[in-house]
Simulated scan of single mutants.
Amino acid sequence: MSETATAAKPAAKRRTKFLVVVDDTPESRVALRYATRRARNIRCGVVLLRVVEPVDFQQWAGVAEIMRSEAHEAAEQLLHDLAEQVNKESGLLPELVIREGVVRDEVLNLANTDPDIRMLVLAAAPSNGTVGGQGPGPLVTALAGQMAGDLSFPITVIPGSLTDEQIDRLT
């Protein structure tokens, strides 16, 4: 058997996972619902990533540590709440990941360390019908535009204004 065939065999046994970056925006919930429904239908996993922005309070180290701790606790609570929702709606138990840093960098870092992640699912922020609206959001702009070539898997960007019923029809 050739070396290529041997290397391909273990990769085929890996479990495909969809990566969803979650935050406090409504569009992240849209991306989560889409990824969860799609994952349930094709029998793969979901990874929820919450990135905590670093706290820079050098003059007050004690305050910075408290702020960092509170941010991590809030991230844990958010992920556990979303995981419960995912499980209730789909029966899936998502992986929960908290990272500290810049969101786009941490997405790339996680993608590079977990070969089972095969797709990133994002939802674009709605423009609210205004000219020059808020745009798709900084993460969508960075990852789907400037950094798309740095990922080894596709990015799915869905409209952040989709309703649950619309998402269910798509998946």
Rank of each mutant, 00 (worst) to 15 (best):
R68C: 15
I167M: 01
A7K: 06
V20N: 02
L32H: 05
E27P: 15
V21K: 01
S161F: 05
T130P: 11
D23H: 02
V22W: 03
D56P: 04
R14F: 10
D150P: 07
R99A: 12
R118N: 14
L139R: 02
V86W: 00
V30Y: 01
T36Y: 02
D116I: 00
L92P: 02
E84L: 15
K88M: 08
V103C: 13
A74P: 06
V51C: 04
R40L: 10
L96F: 03
Q77H: 13
L170N: 06
P115F: 08
Y34S: 00
D56S: 15
A31I: 00
S127H: 12
V52D: 04
V20F: 05
T130G: 08
R99E: 03
A142N: 01
R15S: 15
L82S: 00
R43A: 13
R14H: 13
P54E: 00
L96C: 08
V47E: 01
L162P: 13
D81W: 02
T25D: 08
A11P: 10
P94Q: 06
L78P: 00
F57R: 08
G45V: 02
D168G: 12
E100T: 12
L162T: 04
D164I: 07
D168K: 10
V107Y: 03
T25F: 09
G135N: 04
T171G: 06
A83V: 07
D164E: 09
N109E: 08
R118Y: 06
D164N: 07
E3Y: 12
A125T: 12
V21T: 01
L79C: 04
G129N: 08
